[in-house]
Structure formats: structure tokens, C-alpha cells
Simulated scan of single mutants.
Amino acid sequence: MNVEAFLADARAEIDRVAPRAAYELLQAGALLVDIRPHANRLAEGEVPGSLVIERLVLEWRLDPQGAHRVPQVQPDTRVVVMCNEGYASSLAARDLKRIGLRHATDLVGGFRGWVGAGLPSRPGGSPAIT
């Protein structure tokens, strides 16, 4: 299996959301989780209200049954994962669904799609939850 097939398999397990739909979900209480590395966030910016959790510790911080999860996460929490362009986030969202976050999905186009849609952003570099 090549990476394109691997990505297609992951996306078959999630209901991806476009930037404007993600913005509406965020306004309704969903968590927008930014998994981009610090260097990308510093260079390009961040979404106000997003939760910054780099990919390395994502499952540990978002496992709804885990001892190391962030307090905002419950099994029914709607989580939208965001990366740079919407590739790594698809894989991450699929993994989150598999560990019990039934409403995990990802952002089509990632942060760059968000900004391209004219949605709010701010200068980046916030520390990630470790």
C-alpha cells in the first residue's frame, strides 16, 4: 500500500469538514486541535481558540478514557484536527476515532485552507500542550 491509499483509507473513516463548517463547529463548542509543529505555527500563525497539541502526544492528550487527557475531552466531544494542508490531520483524526473520540474529524485544506477562506488567525508561536 502506498501513502495515497493509506490516506484514502483513513479519510474513508472520517467525515471531513471544510473551513467554514469548522468555524461554525468551533463557535458551537467543538475543539479545533492544531497539530502543526511550533515552527509552522510561528511562521504562519494560529487560529484563535484552537488547542495546540503537537502530533507526538495527540492520542495521549485526547484519549477520552486516558489518565493524561486534557480536561476538555469527553467521548462525545467534537474534535476537528488541523495540520498545514489537511493530510496529516486526516491520519490523526482517524486514529482519534479509533481510540474512542466518535466525533473526531479533520479540516479540509488545513490551516492554509482556513486562512484562504478568510477565517480568523493571529500571530503564532503559542506553546503546545505537552
Rank of each mutant, 00 (worst) to 15 (best):
W114T: 06
L56A: 04
G100P: 00
C83M: 15
V57W: 02
A43S: 07
S89Q: 02
G110L: 05
R122L: 13
D15V: 10
R11V: 04
G113Q: 02
G66Q: 02
F111R: 00
V108C: 14
D63T: 00
G113A: 02
W114C: 10
W114S: 00
L26E: 08
N40V: 14
R36G: 01
L7Y: 12
Q74V: 05
N84A: 15
L58V: 02
A88Y: 05
A67M: 04
R122A: 12
I35Q: 08
L32M: 13
A92F: 04
L7M: 11
E59F: 07
P19N: 09
V57L: 03
A67Y: 03
G49L: 09
H68S: 15
L107M: 08
G49D: 06
R102H: 10
L51H: 02
A67W: 06
A67D: 08
A88G: 11
G124R: 09
E4M: 13
Q27E: 15
S121T: 07
P120R: 05
E46V: 13
E13A: 07
Q65N: 11
W114A: 05
A18E: 13
N84V: 07
L96K: 11
P127G: 03
G109D: 10
I129N: 08
R16W: 03
R55I: 10
T130C: 05
R102I: 06
V70N: 03
G86H: 01
P75V: 07
V79I: 15
D63W: 01
R20S: 01
D15H: 08
D63S: 00
M1N: 06
A8L: 14
A104S: 09
C83D: 12
G49S: 06
V79N: 11
E44D: 14
A117Q: 12
V73G: 04
Q65E: 10
G109S: 09
A8C: 01
Q65G: 09
R112D: 13
S126C: 10
L91Y: 00
D95I: 11
E59L: 14
W60R: 02
F6E: 15
I53P: 04
V47W: 11
I99E: 08
L119C: 09
V70C: 03
G118P: 04
D15C: 06
T77S: 13
Q65S: 12
A67N: 07
Y87V: 14
R94V: 04
L32N: 14
I53L: 05
T77D: 02
Q74W: 05
R94M: 06
G45H: 08
L107C: 13
V108Y: 00
L42F: 05
A10E: 08
S50L: 03
L51T: 08
A5F: 04
L31R: 05
S90D: 03
R102S: 09
A10H: 05
A8V: 13
L58Q: 02
K97W: 10
E24Q: 11
G124S: 11
L119N: 01
G45T: 12
R41E: 06
A43V: 01
A93K: 03
